[in-house]
């Protein structure tokens, strides 16, 4: 019983929450910037997505959306500007709880309004913005701390929010591996060759991986192995940084070779939720050590 209690209420480093908050805000802002030019298409009356159909899809359920009542182009623009301001404020650590609530409502609202255009990264943003909203905020790495630092800023906070974020990432990977494994193209290693020629790829006219299928097989199996192992590597302290490097490496590769960079960006908050204070110190130490090493060899 005590172990279950400590699993949720044990101490956590407030910097982990700050990292997740900042990463989530930046990913949400990037997504909003991508949606900005097409806001009238998907959220306003006269656009592609019928409000009546959106309401019909949501009827009988508890899905809500600000866009059920705000449907004019000007209204949509104002909602998006408010959401963008909330993301900037959340990133800066200003009016954090209120900003987090607005960011969560924005993700709920556009998801409820334009269901046919949603992708997996929209779900990540929706879920992690809820989890940030209900998590301890603290003052670490915020404007408030910068202006008025207090010794108590570094005090430990309850870990429950991070546990829920970690669980979410585990579910993402376990589910996707479960669904991919029975597919014959994942099993024969051809998925990456097909992906490289699909419209998701930035080099869709290249037949390189079709001509070198063995490379596609290595890439396919490696990505499956990473997806299957990342949750467990991240969970164990000894292998955490390996898991972080493997997972973020996979998503970096996706980001630079495809049109799905935003998806990779939205995966980052989930990864950061696994870090504890020691990990953050180690990463910060590595980052500090690199410039010093360069200084030593410079003339």
């Amino acid at each position: 019983m005590k172990r279950a209690f400590d699993f949720f209420w044990g101490p956590a480093d407030p910097r982990t929450y700050a990292l997740v908050r900042i990463a989530l805000s930046l990913a949400a802002l990037a997504n909003l910037i991508l949606l900005w030019p097409v806001r009238d298409e998907y959220f306003a009356q006269g656009g592609l997505v019928s409000l009546a159909a959106a309401r019909a899809t949501a009827s009988g359920g508890l899905c809500g959306s600000v866009f059920y009542v705000v449907s004019s182009p000007t209204g949509v623009t104002i909602v998006m500007l408010v959401a963008a301001a909330a993301m900037v404020a959340l990133c800066a650590g200003y009016w954090m709880r209120f900003s987090a609530a607005v960011v969560w409502l924005w993700h709920l609202s556009y998801s409820g309004r334009a269901f046919p255009i949603l992708h997996s990264w929209d779900a990540l943003l929706r879920i992690y913005s809820l989890l940030v909203l209900v998590s301890p905020m603290g003052r670490v790495w915020s404007v408030l701390q910068l202006r008025h630092p207090r010794p108590a800023d570094a005090d430990r906070v309850p870990v429950y929010g991070l546990r829920l974020m970690q669980w979410q990432l585990v579910v993402v990977y376990v589910t996707t591996v479960w669904l991919k494994l029975p597919d014959e193209y994942w099993r024969n290693g051809q998925v990456c060759a097909y992906f490289s020629m699909s419209f998701y790829s930035l080099t869709s006219n290249s037949t390189f991986f079709a001509r070198h299928e063995w490379l596609s097989a290595i890439e396919t199996y490696l990505s499956l192995a990473i997806e299957a192992s990342v949750p467990w590597l991240l969970w164990m302290k000894k292998t955490r940084l390996v898991g972080l490097a493997a997972g973020l490496g996979l998503h970096f590769a996706i980001a630079v070779t495809s049109t799905l960079a935003i998806f990779s960006m939205c995966m980052v908050p989930g990864y950061l939720s696994f870090l504890d204070g020691d990990d953050i110190d180690r990463i910060a130490g590595l980052a500090r050590a690199r410039p010093r090493a360069q200084t030593l060899v410079d003339p």
Binding site: H119, T175, T176, L179, D183, Y185
Partner: peptide
């Protein structure tokens, strides 16, 4: 739902 690329594109 995490059925992204459960089959090749």
């Amino acid at each position: 739902s995490w059925n992204m690329f459960t089959t090749p594109p």
